[in-house]
């Protein structure tokens, strides 16, 4: 079972990202869970959401304390939130940043081999026209996990967005493009 923790700020779409990711993983035949941490739901407040992905049915309904993947939507959270708390020994951290993996690894105090970076905010600006880093980070996560099918994820996300943005086709295209770009651009250096 893969356990994932998303870190974001209220309004950045950490919850939505976890839900989208879960649905996409289901579309590729996995059992899934997606749940946010409910607390002070205010714009800008640090928030977390979680995913469990498994090949067999998931019965666990406790909190998720030892993620194998941590996704950080907002790099400024690294200073105020213990983002690596409970991270598995060989766990991986994916950060939306323009800095190198080595720089981030030093800041977080973990091995550089555990850190993956992608400039999701820039990708979102280029493709969607707004700094909404959650969909590009989906693409980066799919790449880093490595066992999920990108096309399956794209297809499901497209289907989901089509329901939500029936009247804004450009939003759908932009989001899909952002996933593809982040998938290709996420790096370990």
């Amino acid at each position: 079972m893969i356990e994932i923790r998303w870190h974001g700020r209220g309004g950045q779409g950490a919850k939505t990202a976890a839900l989208l990711f879960a649905e996409a993983a289901l579309a590729t035949g996995k059992y899934i869970q997606a749940f946010p941490e409910y607390g002070p739901e205010r714009m800008g407040a640090p928030v977390q959401s979680f995913n469990r992905i498994s090949d067999v049915p998931i019965t666990l309904h406790c909190g998720l304390h030892e993620p194998s993947f941590v996704v950080i939507l907002d790099p400024t959270l690294m200073d105020s939130v213990p983002v690596t708390a409970g991270l598995k020994k060989d766990g991986k951290v994916i950060v939306n940043t323009s800095f190198s993996a080595a720089t981030i690894a030093t800041r977080l105090g973990i091995n550089a081999s555990q850190v993956f970076v992608v400039n999701a905010s820039q990708i979102a600006q280029d493709t969607i026209g707004m700094d909404i880093p959650n969909t590009p980070m989906l693409g980066a996560l799919v790449k880093v996990i490595g066992t999920l099918d990108l096309n399956g994820v794209l297809e499901d996300t497209k289907h989901k967005l089509e329901q939500k943005f029936r009247h804004k086709p450009q939003v759908i295209e932009g989001n899909l493009e952002s996933i593809k770009r982040a998938f290709n651009e996420v790096k370990n250096v």
Binding site: L19, E23, I32, Q33, F35, P36, I58
Partner: peptide, 12 residues
């Protein structure tokens, strides 16, 4: 069902 744990958890 249990609040949040199930009510707000996306599952299969």
């Amino acid at each position: 069902t249990d609040g949040f744990i199930i009510s707000h958890c996306m599952e299969v």
